[in-house]
Amino acid sequence: MHELSIAMQLVEQIVAIAEENRWPRVDEVELEAGALRQVIPEMMQMAFAEATDQTLAQGALLSIRDIPAKARCNQCTLEFEPEPDNFLCPECRVADVEVLEGNQIILKTVSCEAES
């Protein structure tokens, strides 16, 4: 349930933004989650609902965009999309990579439709 820890950090950030802009509430939050971060969308939604409870962001819609993983082979420099359980380079058949994408959890946007 690390989703709850992530959600709590997320809510802290969005509430700060809402307060800065003097919003009465938060309507939508866009999140990017890398495929390698083990964030399960349903768990994240539940955790978000729990973490926003009694805050300015209560009831906000959370949209989660999954960012595919990308790796570069250290032996032949080929870039490919690894699977969570398979980081073998399709050319070399060796798992020796630099992860380029898929590790991020990023708060992209926060919005409020109310007049401020």
């Binding site: 950090q9 802290e12 802009n21 919003w23 939508e28 959890i105 708060l107 926060v110």
Partner: peptide
């Protein structure tokens, strides 16, 4: 109003 943030959610921990 929409605010573009683009911030690592786990920044505080990192």
């Amino acid at each position: 109003m929409k605010v573009n943030v683009v911030k690592n959610v786990l920044q505080a921990n990192d």
